[in-house]
Amino acid sequence: MSLNIVNNATCTFCGCVCDDIELHADEERIIEAKKACVLGKAWFLNHTAERLYPEALIDGKEATVDEAVEFAAELLDAATTPLVYGMSNITCEAQREAVGLAERLGGVVDSHTSL
């Protein structure tokens, strides 16, 4: 089993966004997160690359991503004022896409900042 070492990894658990973490990972999980705090360690060690969840759910039943994307677009397009909310634990690149989507939908876009 090969061990992958990532130097200066960035932790996105909290707003401090420490960027000096040393991660030791095998194919499936992070085994060690050096220099991370208690919260950061839990964050890195809790997420794995395993397939623990179905790729998508529609009304609680397993579905493909294709079906889920199509149905999501239908629901959002049919709405008068859809809300796009959250945006905190995603990348800036994903945030950019989400704002573009909200604009096209004529909806509302908001983040944890409003709390």
């Binding site: 996105t12 707003g15 945006m87 905190s88 704002v99």
Partner: peptide, 16 residues
């Protein structure tokens, strides 16, 4: 509190 909520502010300011 959350990892990239600052990014959300920055991205939304930039785009809107």
């Amino acid at each position: 509190g959350h990892g990239n909520v600052t990014g959300a502010d920055v991205i939304m300011r930039w785009q809107t």
